[in-house]
C-alpha cells in the first residue's frame, strides 16, 4: 500500500521549472532513494512535501489525503518529519532541548502546566527522548549547546529531532554528506535501523551513490525537475539516461 502519492507535481520559480510533472508513489515501510545531479530538484521536492513551497500544479496525497495546501506545522502533525541539507538546528539550545522540541506536537499543551510549573509532561517526554539519545549515541552531548557540538554530532541531533516527532514518513536530505568515512557507515546503519525499530517509511536524498543504492529498496533519478528513471538501485544505475545525466554524452 502506498503511503505517499505524488501526482503531476509541478513548481517553477520564474522561468525555471524546478519540478515538472513528477509522479511518485512510496510504499509503506520502504526506503526510497532520490538521486540526481545538483539542481535537479531533489530538495525542492522535499520542500513541496513539507509545505515550505506550495506546488503550482499537481497534488500530494499522504495516506490518501491531500496535504498540498497545508502549512508546514500541519503537515508535521500529519506525520511527516524531515531533516535539512544545511543543518537547521536550534543552535542556542542544548541537544536535549532540540530533541524535546521535536516532541512539541505530542505535549499536552494545558496552559496551567507552564504557569504553575507542573512538570509531568516534561518528565514523560524526557523519558522518551532518552531512548533516542541512547539510540543515536548522544549521551555525551546531552546538555551541550548544539553550536558547540562537532558537525557529525549536529547531524545526528537533527536526525534525532526528526525521529522525536514519531513520524510515519521521514524525509532525509543528504543525511551522510560531509561526514567522515566511518561516520558514513555508522549513519547508513542507523538509517536501516530506524526503519526496523520505528516502523518508518524513509525518503532519502543522497549524493553518495554507493551508500544510497545499498540503503534503498527503490530509487528515483531526477534531472532538471523531471523524473528520469525509477526502479531498483541496480536498474537505475544502469539506465542509459541516468548515466548520460551524470557523465554527459560520450
Amino acid at each position: 500500500m502506498s503511503l505517499l502519492e505524488i501526482k503531476d507535481l509541478t513548481i517553477s520559480f520564474g522561468g525555471i521549472m524546478a519540478l515538472s510533472r513528477v509522479n511518485l508513489s512510496v510504499t509503506e515501510k520502504s526506503i526510497m532513494g532520490i538521486i540526481g545531479p545538483n539542481g535537479s530538484g531533489k530538495t525542492t521536492l522535499f520542500n513541496c512535501l513539507t509545505g515550505i513551497y506550495h506546488p503550482d500544479r499537481g497534488d500530494v496525497l499522504f495516506q490518501g489525503k491531500s496535504i498540498r495546501d497545508l502549512s508546514p506545522d500541519r503537515i508535521a502533525a500529519c506525520g511527516i518529519a524531515r531533516t535539512f541539507q544545511n543543518l537547521r538546528l536550534f543552535m542556542n539550545m542544548s541537544t536535549l532541548d532540540n530533541l524535546l522540541l521535536g516532541r512539541h506536537l505530542r505535549f499536552n499543551k494545558n496552559p496551567l502546566y507552564p504557569l504553575f510549573r507542573i512538570r509531568k509532561e516534561e518528565i514523560r517526554h524526557r523519558e522518551w527522548v532518552e531512548g533516542i539519545i541512547d539510540f543515536l549515541d548522544l549521551q555525551a552531548y546531552r546538555s551541550a549547546r548544539v553550536s558547540d557540538c562537532p558537525y557529525g554530532v549536529q547531524k545526528r541531533v537533527e536526525l534525532g529531532r526528526a525521529l522525536a516527532l514519531e513520524p510515519k514518513l521521514l524525509l532525509l536530505d543528504e543525511p551522510i554528506s560531509g561526514l567522515t568515512a566511518e561516520e558514513k557507515e555508522e549513519s547508513a546503519y542507523l538509517i536501516t535501523e530506524i526503519r526496523g525499530r520505528f516502523n518508518m517509511t524513509i525518503l532519502l536524498v543522497e549524493h553518495d551513490l554507493r551508500i544510497a543504492s545499498r540503503l534503498s529498496d527503490t530509487m528515483v533519478a531526477l534531472y532538471y525537475g523531471e523524473k528520469l528513471a525509477e526502479g531498483t538501485p541496480a536498474e537505475v544505475k544502469r539506465n542509459p539516461e541516468v548515466i548520460r545525466a551524470y557523465l554527459g554524452d560520450d
Binding site: P72, A76, F84, R88, F90, M93, L101, H104, L105
Partner: peptide, 16 residues
C-alpha cells in the same frame, strides 16, 4: 526559542 533560532525548522517540527 525555536522560533528565534530557526523559524523554518521550528515550523517543520510542528510549531505553529
Amino acid at each position: 526559542i525555536a522560533i528565534r533560532d530557526n523559524d523554518i525548522s521550528a515550523e517543520a517540527m510542528g510549531v505553529n
